Simulated assay, not measured.
Amino acid sequence: MIALSFTDFRKNMASSFDRVDAGEFVFINRGNKKKYAIVLMDDDDLSITPKMAEKIEKARKEYQEGKTLKFESAKDAQKWMEEL
């Protein structure tokens, strides 16, 4: 992981994108309160396909029917995952 000021990002854009391509997290701080992340995307990430829409609707229905898991803490969720 690397966090850069906006100025440093502008000076090192190519290497920042190379790091993201290599799987590293790159964050950019702009001013005191604004933070951004560079994320690698492909064309499929830019739209909701019919298949994805089906999955979203199924998840909404399961949620409405109470068929979802709820954990009191991240530790409880981690414990549940480790027991799978």
Score class of each variant (00 low, 15 high):
residue 34 K to E: 13
residue 81 M to V: 08
residue 13 M to R: 04
residue 29 N to P: 06
residue 28 I to K: 05
residue 54 E to M: 07
residue 56 I to G: 05
residue 59 A to S: 08
residue 58 K to F: 12
residue 72 E to L: 14
residue 7 T to Q: 15
residue 52 M to N: 13
residue 40 L to P: 03
residue 58 K to H: 12
residue 78 Q to A: 12
residue 29 N to D: 12
residue 80 W to V: 01
residue 81 M to Q: 06
residue 28 I to T: 08
residue 11 K to P: 02
residue 82 E to Y: 08
residue 54 E to I: 07
residue 27 F to R: 08
residue 50 P to M: 01
residue 14 A to G: 07
residue 80 W to R: 02
residue 1 M to Q: 07
residue 15 S to L: 04
residue 22 A to G: 14
residue 74 A to W: 10
residue 12 N to E: 00
residue 63 Y to G: 15
residue 36 Y to K: 05
residue 43 D to Q: 11
residue 74 A to P: 07
residue 73 S to K: 00
residue 75 K to P: 05
residue 46 L to T: 04
residue 17 F to P: 00
residue 25 F to P: 11
residue 25 F to Y: 12
residue 1 M to E: 04
residue 72 E to W: 07
residue 55 K to E: 09
residue 74 A to I: 06
residue 42 D to M: 05
residue 61 K to M: 15
residue 33 K to E: 15
residue 69 L to T: 05
residue 59 A to I: 04
residue 6 F to T: 10
residue 36 Y to F: 13
residue 67 K to M: 14
residue 82 E to I: 01
residue 62 E to H: 09
residue 65 E to H: 12
residue 55 K to V: 06
residue 84 L to F: 11
residue 57 E to Q: 12
residue 42 D to R: 09
residue 24 E to M: 05
residue 38 I to C: 03
residue 11 K to E: 02
residue 48 I to T: 03
residue 44 D to W: 15
residue 39 V to I: 11
residue 29 N to M: 13
residue 40 L to E: 07
residue 70 K to L: 14
residue 77 A to F: 03
residue 49 T to V: 00
residue 5 S to A: 02
residue 47 S to C: 11
residue 75 K to H: 13
residue 8 D to I: 02
residue 45 D to G: 02
residue 50 P to H: 02
residue 10 R to S: 10
residue 58 K to I: 07
residue 46 L to C: 05
residue 63 Y to D: 12
residue 12 N to Q: 02
residue 24 E to G: 05
residue 20 V to N: 00
residue 43 D to R: 10
residue 19 R to G: 03
residue 67 K to G: 12
residue 26 V to W: 00
residue 47 S to W: 09
residue 61 K to A: 11
residue 14 A to T: 07
residue 57 E to L: 10
residue 69 L to R: 08
residue 67 K to C: 14
residue 65 E to R: 15
residue 20 V to R: 00
residue 84 L to S: 08
residue 24 E to L: 04
residue 36 Y to L: 07
residue 8 D to N: 09
residue 81 M to W: 09
residue 75 K to V: 12
residue 54 E to R: 11
residue 4 L to S: 01
residue 7 T to K: 15
residue 72 E to I: 14
residue 66 G to P: 04
residue 8 D to K: 10
residue 39 V to Q: 05
residue 24 E to N: 07
residue 25 F to W: 10
residue 48 I to E: 01
residue 78 Q to V: 14
residue 41 M to N: 05
residue 80 W to D: 02
residue 74 A to R: 15
residue 81 M to R: 09
residue 31 G to P: 01
residue 57 E to V: 08
residue 46 L to Q: 05
residue 43 D to L: 08
residue 38 I to G: 03
residue 30 R to H: 14
residue 74 A to L: 13
residue 19 R to H: 08
residue 1 M to H: 08
residue 27 F to A: 09
residue 8 D to A: 07
residue 51 K to W: 14
residue 31 G to A: 05
residue 49 T to F: 00
residue 19 R to C: 03
residue 60 R to C: 13
residue 12 N to A: 04
residue 35 K to L: 13
residue 83 E to A: 06
residue 59 A to Q: 06
residue 50 P to I: 00
residue 43 D to K: 07
residue 47 S to N: 13
residue 82 E to V: 02
residue 82 E to F: 06
residue 70 K to Y: 11
residue 79 K to Y: 02
residue 29 N to A: 13
residue 29 N to H: 15
residue 41 M to Y: 13
residue 3 A to V: 10
residue 74 A to E: 14
residue 51 K to N: 14
residue 68 T to W: 08
residue 23 G to V: 01
residue 79 K to G: 02
residue 84 L to H: 08
residue 78 Q to P: 03
residue 3 A to N: 09
residue 79 K to D: 01
